[in-house]
Design a protein around this nucleic acid. Sequence first.
DNA 1: ATGCAACAATTCGAGTTGCAACAAAAATTT
DNA 2: AAATTTTTGTTGCAACTCGAATTGTTGCAT
Lengths: 161, 161
Amino acid sequence: MSFDDFDLDHIPSNAHRLYRLIHDLYVVIDAGDRDVLEPFGLTPSQYRVLVLLDANYGQRLITLSDRLLVARSTITRLIDQMEDAGWVHRVDDPSDRRAQHVALTPMGLALRNQAYAAHEHSIEDRMGVLGERDQQRLIDFFLRMRAALRNRIIENDSQKK
Amino acid sequence: MSFDDFDLDHIPSNAHRLYRLIHDLYVVIDAGDRDVLEPFGLTPSQYRVLVLLDANYGQRLITLSDRLLVARSTITRLIDQMEDAGWVHRVDDPSDRRAQHVALTPMGLALRNQAYAAHEHSIEDRMGVLGERDQQRLIDFFLRMRAALRNRIIENDSQKK
DNA sequence: ATGCAACAATTCGAGTTGCAACAAAAATTT
DNA sequence: AAATTTTTGTTGCAACTCGAATTGTTGCAT
């Protein structure tokens, strides 16, 4: 991976430059995440599930799918892995026999806490490149963009999943 | 895909909120890209390659790999696909018999221009949520972050790829 | 000049993801 | 109440991506 010549001069518009930067940022952040989580034997996806299981009462699979913006089948397989690893276990929902809850095992909870602390520290470190004031400004920008973009997508494909 | 309850109140720090927003933004932008490019029969990856082939003289595969931040083997397969589709063709580098150049065919150039126009329009539209001044400010933030994060990664894995 | 490390591209195998099809169970319609 | 539709989770399949191993080539060092 060589990180030379990433200048944006040749890009025609600011909108496009912004687009390119968001993409590159995501790639770099994801790579950083992998580095942090790898010692715990966690992939970023597994980690995101683990974090959502924060509370001790379980989450339904469909809830995980919705919040992580991934397909239901992906969650099924992720939970399969994590159950095999002994981090979580499925519990039938007594009020809806279609549904299941996923809850952390003691081992899963311990792992979650350790990984969370390490990841949180790493996030603070990496995002700390920007001062607190700049971070706040960025958050405001993003919230506006995310809200606007979501609406467009919802307009386009009102069904799906 | 349900877009409810994406509040950030429960997230402990601004750094973490920022992190979450970048991730979400990427997901939403990627979904938008797929919608725009699908009518052209292009995936986002293929499109990114096509755009880099802007100039008429070819790019080397390793250059594409570096600029798109993907593995070399991925580029090999992408170019395989695109060559089968008739959009690009490989040309041996006369000065280095290890290397090859990838150049657009007339068909590839036509496709590139059409897709580019459509995508550019979409980008302007989507990023237009923010005014020109805000976009410029965001670009400055991102450039700082990207530069800093890249350095950390380079420190960690100096070899690779 | 010879040997050795670095480099460009490919192939192979494995892991991840999404979509479509499915089964079972609710919820809604009529 | 019966029939239809929706929902929840799973499975099979295809597409995409990466890392490791491989081949051929270049460039450097001794």
